Simulated scan of single mutants.
Amino acid sequence: MTTKTQLPIPEYFDAHKISQIWRVPYQERATEANNWALKHSIQPAASDEKRICLLIIDAQNTFCVPEFELFVGGRSGSGAVDDNLRLCEFIYRNLNAITTIAPTMDTHTAMQIFHPIFWIDDAGENPIPAATLITLEDVQQGIWKVNPAVADSIAGGNYAELQKHCLHYVQKLSDNGKFPLTIWPYHSMLGGIGHALVSAVEEAIFFHSMARHSQALFEIKGGNPLTENYSVLQPEVLDGADGNPIAHKNAGFIDKLLEFDAVIIAGQAKSHCVAWTIDDLLTDIVARDSMLARKVYLLEDCTSPVVVPGVVDFTEQADAAFLRFAQAGMNVVKSTQSIDSWAGICL
């Protein structure tokens, strides 16, 4: 197989617009992508001998634009913005090597178990988002209880069953050693601008689709009102208090990812949705064949941890997770390195 030379960055790309929101001129970019493919002898993805998937986790405005609800700043304060600049440049430079791009979309509605409206205290007040963790003890002692007003929308009016589910839910989180239930600000709201991909990232994905005749594999997660869904591969809790399933592992998507010769992972946040997704992927890999871990590449400079100065800093937890993934056989790499230089990749 021949080595694929890295490509230049298209002239239209503006690094200063990474944190801005704008409309992608689709037809214009489609025409440019066609011309770009002709100019640089870029072949359709179907002809790839080495099939590479770029999995982009939650590169949405809600996480990646500074004034939005859950901007992932990392310790630098500009983490997701810098990450997306490098990510876009990585896509353009390696357009002829990336077979498929799979963006995940965190997707929520108002009344979900991790949103403030779902819970009340004795005074009828909702919890403060990003500052409230609801533990098993909190629910057992009635410090936080389900808001009766949401039962009609979520449980057909059966408040007792909804309260029973939520006690079961926090019990499962505790039993499985997961983080306590975090109350998040309303974010990634379906139909809202925060739900959309960062414009520059969307543009790069669309340009790739046009130049390589490769449909992007969009994967939606997070719409179940009864469970959190950090990982795109499975929600935090799969069953209800009665033992019946409330959600399922995303086995089809795991199968699809592992069909590729290499899977490259980037996105937000390194400490949460990225780490959870990789962890679930690794669990499935170990169950099948631990050697499959070698086909996974983590773009460490295209992801940042959740850091709220003076409140929380998940940098150490994120770094520890990536170290564990590397020890399991996954490859921690940088976007500035040539794909050809990565272990196990031969284009």
Rank of each mutant, 00 (worst) to 15 (best):
M1C: 13
H187W: 06
I134R: 04
A204Y: 13
P116T: 03
D284Q: 15
R288P: 11
G74W: 11
K39N: 11
V307W: 03
D284Y: 04
A328N: 11
N331H: 07
Q43V: 13
S304E: 08
A328E: 09
R29Y: 05
K295H: 05
L298H: 04
V139F: 11
G252W: 07
F260H: 11
D106M: 07
K256C: 01
N158K: 14
Q163W: 07
P129G: 06
Q215D: 12
G157K: 05
E316M: 14
D289T: 01
Q337F: 11
I98Q: 13
A318H: 02
A262Y: 09
Q43E: 13
L136D: 04
L133A: 14
R294F: 05
G223Y: 08
I254N: 08
S41K: 15
P25W: 02
L181P: 07
V65Y: 04
V296H: 00
T62S: 09
P129K: 05
T227V: 00
S341R: 01
P103D: 05
K50I: 04
K39G: 12
F114S: 06
S153I: 10
F325C: 15
D48F: 00
A59K: 03
Q215F: 12
F253N: 04
I128K: 09
W22S: 02
T5H: 05
D289A: 01
E203I: 03
A30S: 11
I9C: 02
A196Q: 11
S341D: 15
V307D: 00
L298G: 02
S78A: 08
T62N: 03
H213A: 14
N224R: 14
I128Y: 10
C346F: 15
E69W: 09
G252H: 10
I246D: 00
F207S: 08
Q27D: 10
I117P: 14
H168E: 10
V296E: 07
V146G: 07
G191C: 13
L7G: 12
I128Q: 14
G240A: 07
D122T: 03
I98A: 15
L38N: 10
A269C: 13
P148M: 06
C88D: 11
V306R: 13
P44F: 08
A130W: 13
T283Q: 09
K295Q: 09
C64Y: 11
V150F: 08
P116W: 04
D279T: 08
Q43M: 12
Y159F: 15
F253D: 02
V65Q: 05
A293Y: 01
T303P: 03
T3Q: 13
Q171S: 15
L282V: 11
T277A: 14
A155C: 04
D280A: 03
C346K: 15
H187M: 03
R23G: 10
L299A: 06
Q327P: 00
K164V: 03
A155R: 12
A80F: 06
Y297D: 02
L299R: 09
H248C: 02
A110V: 14
I56S: 10
H108T: 14
D284V: 14
M210V: 12
T99I: 02
G77L: 06
P129T: 02
I91L: 09
P103K: 02
G243Y: 01
C64N: 12
E125Q: 10
C64T: 11
